[in-house]
Amino acid sequence: MKKPMIFSEFFRNNGKLMGSILFFLVAFWIIFLILLPQLSMLDYSFRYNLPPAEVGGPKDVYTLRNYRFLVKGPEGASDAFNYVDLAVFVRTILAAMAVTIMNLILCYPLAYFLGQSKGTGFVRLLVVMLIVPYWINEILRAFALRIIFGDVGVINGLMMQLGLIDQPYDFINADIALYAGLGYAYILLMLFPMYNVIESLDRNQIEAARDMGASWIRIHRRVVIPHAKPGIASGMTMVFMLSAGALAAPQVLGGTSSLWFTQLVYQRFNNTLDWPLGAAYAIVLLVASITIVLTFMKIFKVNMGDIGK
């Protein structure tokens, strides 16, 4: 038996009192912050949307109504499928993937530069400067981007000054502002895990590869990226999960015609006050995101255990 061993060792190392406190805190975290909210959402998603008086009454039974709604649309609708919501769902997932990949491409060179220039004062300053914008609230940052990308914003102004365009370009409706905003919102979550692993890479390994004639591409492909894989994976996981689940940036920066799936969830909860339906939508997004992440981890042979490192 392995588990009890772990526990007895844990208590031996930390003492009875401290061990109990730590144990209690972890249990509290898991039960109250992770399990209970998700379980209640799961429970909600299988129920009818009933007025408070009927909750617990004979009509309060489990149903697949909410999931059917996402796939098929309302009862008696003309279309065979709920094309509108499904399209939003697929677009959200694909866009979140695109944002993740965009962030990866942007962050890798930066993480490599920061990680391999080993803690000089200038580099430390750069890292701090990267964090500063995150002292500002996420919604404020989204509005700031909206202003910058707006018709009379800095970017349009500059491009018109330079004579590149003569009409302001509608960055908002082209979703460019949205992608920029989403990318910007979570870019540090991509950068830091990568920076950490790359910093731990022994410089001599890079030099050894170079000494043996390897090109820069090969050095990265064979030495740096394999070493950085856990960091890349955890960065990508976080950025993907958070982009797919983002609400502020799509609300503020999204074009009029494009909805983010989370906005649908939000509407179900807030506008149509159909909490069970909203819960079902949220569960579908969560399960889909987790499945996608696990699939990619399988494909790229990343272990769950490595990610925590």
Binding site: E207, A208, A209, V223
Partner: peptide, 9 residues
Amino acid sequence: LIFQNLALF
């Protein structure tokens, strides 16, 4: 070059 710390991959 053989490095002081070998630098095997």
